[in-house]
Simulated assay, not measured.
Amino acid sequence: MSTTTTTTETVLRVRDLDVRFPTPRGEVHAVRGVDLELRRGEVLGIVGESGSGKSVTSMAILGLLPETTKVTGSIELEGQELIGRSDKQMSKLRGAKVAMVFQDPLSAFTPVYTIGDQIAETVLVHRGGTKQQARARAVELLKLVGIPQAEQRVDAFPHEFSGGMRQRAMIAMAMANDPDVILADEPTTALDVTIQAQIIDVLRTAQQETGAALVFVSHDLGVIAGIADRIAVMYAGRIVETASAEELFARPRMPYTIGLIGALPRLDESSGGPLVPIPGSPPSLIGLADACPFADRCPLAAAVCRGSEPPLATVDVAAGVAGE
């Protein structure tokens, strides 16, 4: 778990976020009424299958969705509303107040510029100063994330770095201007288990050095368990359960969360037995019916689940009962 000290100060607040994409087949309701709060210094894990809306939520926060996308609701960063801002206004925040660690750093970096030039440009745009100062900052950041021989590697091009090194460099770029929020969109997906652990350690370092709150998006509950203070589980565009990491793994309430945990390999159990997958596939988000979208895959589904989508209930953790 993250050991970073958190405060009660809310740095990011998302309310009733809706994201819709027009397509030839109909409107894709990719995010449906998402509510999130992120406190300063906290690590929030967002987990779910592909297509659940995790990455779209992150991209909406940064204002990186296509112009044809319909985004409604509220996204407040330190009390400032972000929805409705122009791309020019958002560009002043990206990299300075909110930074992103993308899933594929090879495509995120520009191939014709060196790693150092791209990190230095981020510093110059938001902090100013001389090119020499920006380059020195780039070297400092590469050392901080564990790039060996940073003084020489700063002049390397993205294709000259391994996948793990590129992800480290992407994290260095994200922390260049000490942002308030770092969004990490599945930063360990394409890496092997050993490198995954190293990248998580680098993200912890980045958070501690900048004091930022961290949103860690992943489809892997095992990875999330190693870094998150709090976890939000997404399914079919909604957050279906949220709790502290300890509470979620000890007492999951939503059948989908129980299924995700049941499909997770465990080191404390004898090997050789098959994992228990969740049957079926997530539903299409085009013309989604007014019913529980997990009903067709849920072993606990009842008739009421197919009549309308059940509202989520607040659970009293101490008492272990649902509130009204």
Score class of each variant (00 low, 15 high):
194 T>H: 12
264 L>Q: 13
38 L>E: 04
274 P>S: 07
278 I>A: 08
271 S>H: 13
309 E>S: 12
287 G>E: 02
141 L>K: 00
80 Q>M: 11
65 L>R: 08
313 A>M: 15
149 Q>K: 12
250 A>R: 15
177 N>H: 05
250 A>L: 12
119 I>F: 09
104 D>E: 13
67 E>H: 12
11 V>D: 00
56 V>M: 07
198 Q>E: 13
25 R>Q: 13
38 L>Y: 07
27 E>D: 09
80 Q>P: 08
29 H>K: 13
240 V>E: 01
154 V>R: 00
257 T>E: 10
287 G>S: 07
129 G>H: 07
203 L>V: 00
103 Q>W: 11
90 M>T: 09
140 E>I: 02
80 Q>L: 11
92 K>S: 11
132 Q>F: 03
297 R>G: 02
57 T>F: 04
263 A>P: 07
218 S>G: 06
256 Y>V: 06
187 P>E: 00
24 P>Q: 04
113 Y>Q: 10
86 S>V: 03
19 V>A: 09
82 L>C: 10
137 R>I: 01
281 S>P: 04
45 G>E: 02
63 G>I: 00
34 V>L: 10
67 E>I: 10
15 R>S: 10
176 A>H: 01
303 A>K: 13
301 A>M: 11
165 M>H: 12
234 M>Q: 07
97 K>C: 01
143 K>N: 13
3 T>H: 14
126 H>S: 04
223 V>E: 01
111 P>D: 05
273 G>K: 13
314 T>F: 13
7 T>M: 09
261 I>R: 11
34 V>C: 08
110 T>V: 04
80 Q>T: 15
53 G>L: 03
64 L>A: 07
302 A>F: 03
128 G>I: 03
159 H>T: 08
315 V>T: 15
38 L>R: 10
221 L>K: 10
69 T>N: 09
55 S>H: 06
233 V>M: 11
58 S>F: 00
219 H>K: 14
195 I>R: 15
78 E>N: 14
235 Y>C: 01
155 D>F: 10
308 S>C: 08
55 S>E: 01
30 A>R: 02
119 I>S: 05
195 I>M: 11
100 M>D: 03
205 T>S: 05
47 V>I: 08
260 L>Q: 02
172 A>P: 07
